[in-house]
Design a protein around this nucleic acid. Structure first.
Lengths: 179, 179
DNA sequence: TAAAGCATGTAAGAGGTTACATGATTGG
DNA sequence: CCAATCATGTAACCTCTTACATGCTTTA
């Protein structure tokens, strides 16, 4: 996941490690530590996906190479990054994805969340039925349901937006063709 | 985190690996894989925190030892498991924590979320001010704000509940003492 | 000039992921 | 009896965490 983050952030402009970390915190990915970030930068450099531009003082900015841009597109478009924080990370870079791919990705995520919601609802009902009297477990399960529902409606908004984008972008497929 | 989960689930009653995994999925911790669960069981057994009870067929149930119960209490009460999924995991076992410790833990978590909310709000304002026109990044930041707010109000409910528990449990500290 | 924050790095160890392999049990 | 599901396990690989070490830059 760090790889996607680094490549995606460098796609916009060169940055150095400390800056990357700050941006990740802004985006809500607070857990990234320097002990994983710096080794990740070296790995990516070794693979030729990014290259260092020595700067003032101790700073070491990196830029995305052409190869890195290809790899970024590949990861961003790949189907298997559906889970949890990974999806949010991909969402942060949706600007670099084609509208149809966006829509596909959003729908896939939505159906993933729907099945999670069903699981959470069943678990909550079972807990209530069991009547264990454990308020905190019940509260946790209730919260799982509520936050998953909220995530789904968030997805619905994004799906509506993505549809409107596609309608606005390629209207000539509706009116075009032979007169 | 897996250690806490396993010890906590076994504290109620013995279970085998497959069962533990199923319960974790119910509780919303879906990412646990058998490739981490079974080695974790062996580690815990080696440390004397759990012990195996051979059962029918291939099943191998484990029970919590006295040492395991101590270790569970230590982890559950420890201050440094404040982050993300770790907190929810602890919440699932709040029934085993003393009411005052619950309240302390909930408050700590709340202040953690409040500072996360501030960060998220600033990031959202900055993004709007920058006017990058990237709808998806803005949506992500907006969602970060909303879901953190929702988490805080969830916490507030739990804090109110924990307070009421303590008031109900020890009312004589209010009326007692010297007449 | 001292402190605080900026900035990069390494090493050890723990732990997770994925893929693979195996065998038991149950239902159609 | 076959398939699906239950159930446990191992190995290779990779990554993250934590702790430590270092040095620059700004500002009070």
């Amino acid at each position: 996941m760090l790889d996607l983050a680094v490549l995606g952030l460098l796609r916009k402009r060169p940055r150095h490690g400390y800056e990357l970390k700050a941006r990740l915190v802004e985006l809500g990915f607070a857990r990234v530590s320097f002990g994983s970030l710096y080794p990740a930068l070296r790995r990516l450099e070794k693979r030729g996906l990014i290259e260092a531009l020595r700067q003032s003082g101790r700073r070491k900015a990196y830029r995305l190479t052409d190869l890195g841009e290809q790899e970024f597109a590949r990861i961003l478009g790949s189907t298997d990054h559906d889970e949890d924080g990974r999806f949010n990370m991909r969402l942060a870079f949706f600007q670099y994805l084609e509208p149809p791919a966006r829509l596909r990705s959003l729908k896939r995520r939505r159906s993933h969340l729907v099945s999670r919601l069903q699981n959470a609802q069943v678990a909550l009902q079972d807990e209530i039925a069991a009547g264990s009297g454990d308020h905190y477990t019940a509260a946790l399960l209730q919260h799982n349901v509520a936050s998953t529902e909220s995530d789904i409606s968030f997805l619905d908004q994004l799906i509506a937006y993505a549809r409107s984008e596609m309608a606005a972008e390629a209207p000539r497929t509706l009116t075009g063709g032979k007169k």
